[in-house]
């Protein structure tokens, strides 16, 4: 599909810290792909799109809750990746994480500026399912997926460190990051005052920082 081989293991950038373990993204050269975008190689962007668009749309859809808006954001994210590829600095983190950060930030900007979001009653069924999966008493269903693909960099310990959190604070982190919920929405969802949610999240951040180093 591309004019250069983006899937060859030997071109995995050194900044992947030599960890090209298995996982669906282990052998895709994200950094090389972004460098090719800087050179104007559109096939490199297409390769990235083929590789990641479905997962990116999944991430964005959970936050904005609207298929058409999510696709608009996916479009904007890839245009932005194309335009800003030259600002990607492999010494500051992996290319795949950079791509997801762009898409996620666009999604978060969208819900913030639209005053957000649908009420919990209006949420599509599949979102309800995964919320149930984030039930503090039953986090196993989602937590085993955390970090299940290769991100490079320093994300390896995330699953282990999340497991060490208490169930309810862990659910708060989930609802914030994965669902894009505000702290007061999380409070409504799990039936806790917003001040309590804030304090759980604060403590969780401190604990995660301590665990992940």
């Amino acid at each position: 599909m591309g004019s250069r081989d983006l899937t060859s293991p030997e071109v995995v950038a050194p900044d992947e810290r030599g960890q090209s373990e298995s996982g669906h993204s282990g052998t895709f050269d994200y950094d090389g792909c972004l460098r090719a975008c800087v050179d104007g190689d559109k096939s490199a962007l297409k390769a990235l799109y083929v590789r990641e668009s479905q997962q990116l749309l999944g991430v964005v859809s959970r936050i904005v809750r609207d298929r058409a808006r999510a696709e608009d954001i996916l479009h904007d994210a890839f245009v932005r990746i194309w335009q800003r590829a030259s600002t990607f600095d492999a010494s500051r983190g992996g290319g795949r994480g950079w791509v997801y950060t762009i898409a996620r930030n666009l999604a978060l900007d969208t819900i913030r500026s639209s005053g957000k979001q649908v009420s919990t009653e209006d949420r599509p069924e599949e979102v309800g399912d995964i919320d149930a999966a984030a039930d503090p008493g039953n986090s196993q269903r989602w937590i085993e997926k955390v970090g299940s693909s290769h991100w490079g960099g320093n994300s390896e310990r995330l699953q282990e460190c999340l497991e060490r959190l208490e169930p309810i604070p862990r659910a708060c982190i989930f609802h914030a990051y994965v669902n894009g919920y505000s702290q007061s929405e999380i409070g409504d969802l799990i039936g806790a005052p917003v001040g309590t949610v804030k304090s759980w999240i604060k403590r969780s951040l401190v604990a995660l920082r301590g665990c992940m180093g």
Binding site: Q55, L57, A70, Y100, N154
Partner: peptide, 18 residues
Amino acid sequence: WQERLVGLCDVAEPVEVR
């Protein structure tokens, strides 16, 4: 934090793109 938390993106189910 961007680098440490990005593994949470694995939790979302992929969605078919038109």
